[in-house]
Amino acid sequence: MSGGWVETPSTFGREDSLVGTLCVPAEGADSATPLVVFLNAGIIHRTGPNRLYVQLARALARDGFPSLRFDLSGIGDSGRSGASQGSLREGVRADIASALEFASEASEASRFVLLGLCSGADHALDAGARRDDVVGTVLFDLNVDRTVGYHVRHYLRRVLRPRIWWNVLTGRHRSTRALFQRLGLGNPDPAPQPRGSTFATALTTEEGEDALRRVVGRAAPILAVFTGGVEYQYNHRGQMRRLFSDVPLGARLTELYRPASDHTFTDPEERAWLIRTTVDWMTARLGASTTPAGGAGP
C-alpha cells in the first residue's frame, strides 16, 4: 500500500478456488466508475508479463479506476474449480462471471471493463459480449485472421527487401529450395511455422464478428492495440476494422498499432506508452464524467 492505491488479495468463486487482487484508488471510487478486470495473458499468472498488469492496475487506480487481476482456473494460484463441466471456453466464462460477482460485492462496482493480452484479449471479447454489465473491452494483441490487405503488405515488404532477392538467387530462399526439391535437387523443406491463432480458446473470425456485433450493439467502446510481436497475423493499423467490416464499429473502436513493440511490451518506453494510452482512453471513454454507455471519445 502506498499513495494512490490500496490492494487486497482474496479468494473467491466456487470453493474459493480463484485467487485475485483487488486494487482500488486510495480515495475510493463511486459505483458508477467501471472496474477493470484483468484476464491472464496465456498461462502467465495475474501479475501479467513482467508485472504489466500490476503496473497498469496501479496506474488506473491513481486515475480513479478500481480493478481486479485474477488467475483463471488452473493458472497461477487458482485451483481447478470444476465450475463448468463444459468446454474450456465455458469454464473461462464461468470464472469471469465469478470474478465480476466478487468484484461487485467487494467494491460496489456495477459496470466492468474486461482487459486482456493475447488469449486474455480473446477471453475479454468473448465474455464481454455476453454481459450487459461489461461496458468496455481493452484488447492487446487480440488473435485475428490475416486479410487481403495483410498479405499485400506482407509480400510487398518482402519483395522490396534486397536480402530476399539475394536469397532467391543463391538458393537459400524457401521458394528456390522448393523448386530445387521438385526437381530432385535438394532436401525436403522444413515444415513451415504455424501461423495465426494457436490458442484453444481463440475466436474464429465469425465468432469475433458476432461478439463485436453484440458489444457495439450495447454502445460499449473497444480499445484494441496490436504490436509488431504478432506480425505473423497483424501488420497494419486498420486491419481489425477491415476484417470486421460488416460490423458497424464506427467510433466505438479505437485501433492502434505499435510495430516497434514486442508482444509483451518489454521496451520501457513502449510499456509507458501503453499504460498512459490505456488510462487516457479509460478516462475519456469511461471516466466518471462520461455517460454510462461511453462517449465518442478521442
Binding site: E7, P9, G79
Partner: peptide, 17 residues
C-alpha cells in the same frame, strides 16, 4: 490457499500461504 499481504506499511510484501 490464503493470499495475503504482510511486512510494513513502507515495505508491503505479497504472499500466498
Amino acid at each position: 490457499m490464503i493470499p495475503l499481504l504482510f511486512g510494513t506499511r513502507e515495505r508491503t510484501l505479497a504472499g500466498v500461504y
